[in-house]
Amino acid sequence: MVRPAECGRVTTVEHAGHGEGEHTSRWPLVTAVGAAALYVGAGLALVGLDLVPAVLPAVLVGGGALGFVGGLAGWFAEAFLVDYWDEREDVYTGGMVLFLVSDVSTFLAGFVYYGFIRIGAWPPTELPPLLGSLVVVNTLILVASSLTLHYGHGALEAGNRRGFLAGLGVTTLLGVVFLGGQALEYYEFVTHEHFTLAGGAFATAFYGLTGLHGLHVTLGVVLLGITLGRALRGSFGPERDTSIRTVSLYWHFVDVVWILLVVVLYVGAVVG
């Protein structure tokens, strides 16, 4: 009854006398507990530090994040390092595509807000200097990172391990640099322009959308980092590139969203 693909997915303990396997893994629970602690911590912090002693949320958030990442790491180790079955590639790719579809909807809410304020009197408040060299450089960096990742993937398929590692490494690095640029922009705006999160209708859109995008980039960098670690240990090959494929999909998606953001939010706010 059990296909070979099946065994690869989950550690299988044969049941005496039965043909059916018993499927267990502790990583989902660990990951869930980590995520839950993270959420509870964040919730308690929002409830107010005058009601909750500050250590509690701090410990919960910190421990939760650790548990979450640890859970994921254990998960990947179990799922991909112990056994690897390539025939499930379309399943993983399909799953990632569906996730990205759902992510479109996540961003949609923010864009709808922006649409709501954009059709009103414009600008609602004084705009900060949006179109500077920083945005241009950051955009170029992100576009470049998509290209390097594509190159790396190509190298992997061609069996060029060094090229693959280089591509992946540079991509990760560019992602980090982008995040740095983003942080720099926030810093400039907040300290020099006094343009803060609570600074009115446009600030809400600006920080909301770029912040959401920044979170995506951060997650992308984490995923790239994990993949890079596994790549260094030699987990991938020309025929074994499911993880690279799915992570690439994600990264290109984040890249496209950024370009949309630049067009709509940065340029769109200034012109017209």
Binding site: R9, S25, P28
Partner: peptide
């Protein structure tokens, strides 16, 4: 099918 496509994601989804 023998199981859901992603059995661990399945468990994670429940435990959240």
């Amino acid at each position: 099918a023998d199981d859901m496509a992603f059995p661990r994601v399945n468990a994670l989804g429940f435990w959240l």
